[in-house]
Amino acid sequence: MANYTLNINGKKQQIDVDPTTPMLWVLRDHIKLVGTKFGCGIAQCGACTIHLGDNAVRSCQLPISAVGDQKITTIEGLSENGDHPVQQAWLEIDVPQCGYCQAGQIMSASALLKRTPNPTDEEIETAMNGNICRCGTYTRIKKAIKTAANSENA
């Protein structure tokens, strides 16, 4: 076990865990932030996507010992009132079916728009190919990303 001080959603958090513990389980089991989802455990489905700094990363493959003082943002901290342009677009297009993958989708999409404010279809596909939606809401996901891009540029 080891002690870590993390910066999660703008708050300092003290955690005492095994250094190999992935951030996914630090968030879910220890900090009780369960918006970040478990899907595969091997960085293949994207359900556990969070932001490390400005980058979308798979938290199931990110050991707590590798985080250091980098800022972590989870779906709960993406916006204060759930009104990030990507979240708003998701509601406008009414993307979710079961909803389980959507937090990860939104974290990938918001990181994409931060670095590429006007993504092409191909850029969207490349950025989002790591996020599985088992219900098949992909066409709505694309539409929502474009909606968010347009609203951010307006």
Binding site: L33, V34, G35, T36, K37, F38, T74, I75, E76, L78, G82, Q87, W90, L91, D94, P96, G99, Y100, Q102, A103, I106
Partner: peptide, 19 residues
């Protein structure tokens, strides 16, 4: 067209699922 009643909770990561 009526929007998903859980939409806001889903996009903000609120606890909803069995897990």
């Amino acid at each position: 067209d009526v929007k998903n009643v859980d939409g806001k909770k889903i996009v903000t990561g609120q606890p909803l699922f069995g897990l």
